[in-house]
Design a protein around this nucleic acid. Sequence first.
DNA 1: GCCAACGTTGGC
DNA 2: GCCAACGTTGGC
Length: 157
Amino acid sequence: MTQIKKQPQKNAKEGQVMPKYWLLKSEPEEFGWDDLVRVGDALWDGVRNHQAANNMRAMAVGDKAFFYHSGPGTGKFGPHIIGICEVTAPAQRDPTDDTGKWVVVTVRAIEKLLRPLPLRAIKADPALSQMALLRQSRLSVSPVSRDEWDYICGKSI
DNA sequence: GCCAACGTTGGC
DNA sequence: GCCAACGTTGGC
């Protein structure tokens, strides 16, 4: 019998499909975690930033993303990661965009964190000091490294 | 309400 | 191509 080992990501061969990890920001007063749970598959539309759009183009079905509450209405925690969702359809034209330049992905809620992880806790944790969330605070769709993903899930699930 | 970061626009 | 003005995002 042949044993097949799973390759860790750092040894992934070119062309091998490994899940990638992301962070999606939304204002809870516009579209929050509870809305995502309620609607099921949700089109992530309205993104009008090239870097964010390129990140969405790099997404594949099965990729995971933290769902992050930003802006007003984030309550006592302030801005925070609230849950985990997954990509259920790849980038396609944004139906809210007349120019055809912008894309959406489709995401679906998977699970809520045991407790929200506030931005202030992320900022205070040296293990997370390199997160794109901190380095580019205005980017609404940002990548998360596998290490960052595992570290946060280890603490928060 | 303020401000920093940063993207876009338009004059030159 | 440069840069000032302006608008938006998002944290505080």
